Simulated scan of single mutants.
Amino acid sequence: MTTSTPTPSVFGAVHLGYLVIETDRFADWRRFGTDAIGMHHDTLDTDRMRFRLDDQECRFLLRRGPAEDVVAIGWHVDDHATFEQIEARIRTHGVPVTEGTAEEAALRGVERLVRFPGPKRIAQELYTTPVKATRPLRMHSAGFVTGASGMGHIALTSTKPAHIRGYFTTVFDARLTDYIDETISGAKLRIRFLRVNERHHSIAVAATRGLPVDPIRTRIQHLNVQVRELDDLAQSYQRVCELGFDMALSVGQHTNDKELSYYARTPSGFEWEVGWNPIVVDESTWQPATHQGISIWGHKPVGQTIVDKLDQFRRGARSLTRHEDVVPALSGTGIPDD
């Protein structure tokens, strides 16, 4: 009898690298990204611009279009062997992989990339070699934490959270870090936190318990960047308020990763979390746990009206009739979840 040899894990060799955002609100996004959050900005042409956090040439690519949403996620893998291993996994499951064009790679600040379908119609892109920028950073910040932890995290809402967990486990050997149970406006939520490296989580997946509704219009609920200094958190919070951008949640501290953060609302409608000093997972001792509530303190809604809450309920009701794409071939039906 022959037995198959399991493929080596790619955990730890994968890092959140960049995001592609489609928007028609370029002027607002430039003010938000540069003047409020404090990132380095580069205008490419009338239809494309980029933000930097570090010496990588692109961390956020904004292209003109109607989605007002994140449309692609770039994952940096450490070497060509890992790149080929992940690509082979995807093809083995019968999922198409396409080579990015030279222009697409240049816009994202990478040497080459491949693209494949992802949950919620967010394209997933792999690359190995980022292009280093020659121009010095111009930022209202002492710097952002990237490196081995990646550039931050994304958070999704889903009616099929086990499928999304299965997807990232199948593709990247993602590990479950922990859960949070929370009740918001009477709705019971369970949030799964998944890591692909030392960062506490690179993906969070929130779902409503007992009723398969998704009250969020956008494909992602929020994205996160991590500042190096506490002063940068406080000063960017002040800039967001003074410049007239909406604050979604005030400064607070999370129960699970202990990160201090706030959430601003982007010109496209999804939220942007600026955080400081989350814990780093020790793989030798870590055990998943369930935390009650997202915050130890703070993270209070800012400026939310009854109209806003009604809009959320309407969106949730509409989601009952909307198909959610989770790429079944990569969703790992045998992966346990609860």
Rank of each mutant, 00 (worst) to 15 (best):
V95R: 13
A105P: 09
T23L: 02
R112D: 13
R209T: 04
Q238E: 13
W276N: 10
G303S: 01
G316P: 01
A289Q: 11
G38L: 08
S261N: 12
G74S: 09
D173P: 11
I154E: 09
V205F: 13
I180M: 13
T34Q: 15
T7M: 13
P212E: 07
A162R: 10
Q124L: 15
V71M: 08
G65T: 01
D181M: 11
K160T: 06
K120N: 15
E68R: 00
F26W: 08
I37K: 02
D214Y: 01
F116P: 11
D214M: 01
S202C: 12
A206Q: 09
G293C: 04
G109V: 06
M139R: 13
T285H: 03
A155I: 00
S261M: 12
E103P: 05
D308W: 03
E22C: 02
D47K: 00
L53C: 05
A148W: 08
G186E: 01
L113T: 09
L107F: 09
R135C: 03
L62E: 07
R50F: 04
A248N: 13
T290S: 04
V97K: 07
T7H: 12
H76G: 07
P66L: 03
R59M: 04
V280F: 07
S295M: 06
Y237V: 10
P96R: 14
V205M: 12
C58S: 07
V240Q: 07
P96V: 10
F193A: 03
Q253P: 03
V110E: 14
S284N: 12
P301Y: 03
G38D: 12
G109Q: 08
D79W: 10
T218S: 05
S141I: 10
R50P: 04
T169N: 14
H76Y: 11
R209E: 06
I306L: 13
T46D: 15
F313H: 07
E57T: 06
T218W: 01
G65W: 01
T146A: 15
T208Q: 14
